[in-house]
Amino acid sequence: MEVIQLDKARNTNFLKEVEAESGQKLSTCYQCGNCTAGCPGGEFYDRQVSQIMRAAQLGLKEEALGNRSLWLCLACSTCSARCPNEIDVAGVMETLRSMARREGYVNDRPIESFWKAFLDMVSMNGRTFEAGVMADYMLRTGRGWSNLAMAPAALAKGKMPFFPHRIKGRKEVARIFKRYAEKRS
């Protein structure tokens, strides 16, 4: 493990950006660890939620954005519910994810690709389409076969129809995506 030159490594602008974008005040975090304690994804994380919060609090950009945990986070918001200081921790995680994408810190491409595939299907059909998500994901990553073992069970339960169920308002949903894309650019 390396020694962090804390005074030099700190990026207070990054802290301000996270606070502004998430609307949360990170200095209220006193590191009780309740977010980590309740996190259902914690056992798979390379850096625990409370540690990510600490990294953000200190303004350590690399540590806050370049971890795999951001992409394993389920956004279940248990951390936000448990936080004694009323920080929307899940909101902070979401902010960090979007910053990581913007600034090229994404640490786990396949998970990001899965998210993109999912959103592609929603914008096309107004709702998810599992087989489509799978195909899209395979194309994006070229490693779709790794999940093939699950297909028979999913097929048998009717969880993977071959044609998408489109919703009535799918054009409106598509417009939401378009508007978002326009706003982003």
Partner: peptide
């Protein structure tokens, strides 16, 4: 660290136990 949940469960010997789930923030682990 703080505790997030206490879950009662029945152990193999039939006695009720309480699974206390918290975090060790010094260890950085649940």
């Amino acid at each position: 660290g703080r505790v997030s949940t206490i879950q009662p469960h029945i152990r193999p010997d039939g006695v009720v136990g309480y699974m206390v789930r918290g975090a060790d923030t010094l260890l950085g682990q649940p």
